[in-house]
Design a protein around this nucleic acid. Structure first.
Lengths: 195, 195
DNA sequence: GGGTTAAGATGACCGCGGTCAATATAAAAG
DNA sequence: CTTTTATATTGACCGCGGTCATCTTAACCC
C-alpha cells in the first residue's frame, strides 16, 4: 500500500531547490556544487540524491523552468508576421540558452530527452515550443508547401545551429541574430522566382 | 632555445593512442577510463595529461579521425543529384555519430568548437563537411535562391536535428533516415507551385 | 668525459559527483 | 501504547578525472 508523501519530504526538497536557485543566481549555473547545495539546505549529501537522480537532473529542472517562462511570454504575444519579427521574438530565449556554455550543454543534452526512459522538463519545453511555432505558422505569410509542424522543427534546428556557432571559434564574429535571420529567411520564405 | 621533440615522447604518445583505440574497439567509447589507458600503455596517469588536455580531448581526436574517414569516402563519391541520394550518402556518417550517446555528445560539444581558443579535430571535420556540401550544391539541381554555403549549413542543421531526435523519447519511433529525408526535401527543393 | 638545462615521466593527492548499508522517523496495525 | 513497516535521512566511502611538486632522462656545451 503506497503511503502519502510526508510533509517533511516536501520541505526538504523545497530547501534543496531554494538553495540551488540561490547559488545559480549568485554564482551562475556552472559554479553549482552539490556539496554547497546540501550545506545551504542543511541536509546530507545522500538526501540530495534521494530527491534528484543526479546533479544535471536538478539543473534541467531549473533551466526548464526558465525556458518555460520565456515560452509563456511568446505564447502571450501575437504571432510574428515577418521573419525579422520571428527572429526578434526568439532572441531572448536564444540569449538565455547561450548565457553559459554549461546551460547550452544542458539544453543540448536534454532537448532531445537524453534519457530515453523519461521525458524531462527541458524536452517538454521543446515540445511546447514546437506547438507554439506550429500555431504561428498555421496562419502566417510563410511558405505553404510544407506542413506547419515541419516548419516548426526546422526553426528549432536553425536556432540550434545559430546558437552552436556562437560558441564556435570559426564563426563567433557574427551574432546569433545575424546568423539566424538568413537561415530562417531561406527556410520560411523561399524566393519562388529564383528557385 | 626550443629543443626538438624527443623520440621517446612520440613513442609514449603513440602507445597512449593505441591503448585508447584498442579499448574503444573492444568496449566502446563510453567505457574508456583514463586509468585503463595508462595501464595498457605502461605509463603514469600524469603522463596522459601531459599529452592530452583532458580525456575528452583524446576522444575528440579519435572521433574526429573516424569522421574524417567518412568524409574521405564522401569526397571520393560523385555529388548526389537527388535528395534521396544525398540522404543515402549521409547515412553512414549519421549512424557513426549516433552509435553511442557519448559519441554524439562529443560531436555536439566539439562541432561548434567548444573551446573558443582552439579549433579541434571535430570542428575541423565540420568545416570540411561544409566545403564538401558546398561543392555538391554548386552544380546540383536544388534550389538556387540561396547560396551554396547557406544550403550546406542548413543540411548540417537538419542532420543534427534528425540525430538528436534519435535519442529522444518523444520521437524515436522514426529512424534517422525517415526524419532526415523530409527535412532535406523541404530545405533543398521547395515546391514552387505551392509556396 | 663531466656539468648544465630543458623536456618528459611519475604517482601521491585532490575535487566532486554519486552510492549504499545503517539509522531515524513517521504512519499504519495490533 | 507497542510493534511493525514503509519512507526519509545520514555520512563514510568509492570511482574517476585532473593537478603538481618531484624525480629522471636526454640533449647540448665545454
Amino acid at each position: 500500500m503506497a503511503r502519502a508523501v510526508q510533509q517533511r519530504t516536501l520541505e526538504t526538497r523545497a530547501r534543496l531547490i531554494a538553495a540551488a536557485e540561490a547559488i545559480v543566481s549568485e554564482e551562475g549555473f556552472e559554479a553549482l556544487r552539490v556539496e554547497e547545495v546540501v550545506q545551504r539546505a542543511g541536509t546530507a549529501k545522500g538526501t540530495f540524491f534521494a530527491h534528484f537522480r543526479d546533479k544535471d537532473s536538478l539543473m534541467e529542472m531549473i533551466v526548464g523552468a526558465r525556458i518555460d517562462a520565456y515560452l509563456d511570454a511568446l505564447e502571450g504575444a501575437a504571432a510574428p508576421k515577418t521573419v525579422d519579427g520571428l527572429v526578434g521574438a526568439l532572441m531572448p530565449l536564444c540569449e538565455f540558452m547561450t548565457c553559459e556554455r554549461y546551460v547550452f550543454d544542458i539544453v543540448l543534452r536534454y532537448s532531445g530527452a537524453a534519457a530515453v526512459e523519461k521525458i524531462g522538463p527541458v524536452a517538454t519545453t521543446f515540445g511546447r515550443q514546437i506547438e507554439i511555432f506550429q500555431r504561428w505558422f498555421a496562419g502566417a505569410p510563410f511558405r505553404r508547401d510544407v506542413p506547419p509542424d515541419l516548419l516548426a522543427e526546422g526553426v528549432q534546428a536553425f536556432m540550434f545551429q545559430a546558437m552552436a556557432a556562437h560558441f564556435c571559434a570559426l564563426h563567433n564574429a557574427q551574432s546569433i541574430r545575424e546568423r539566424l535571420a538568413p537561415y530562417l529567411d531561406a527556410w520560411l520564405s523561399p524566393d519562388r522566382d529564383r528557385l
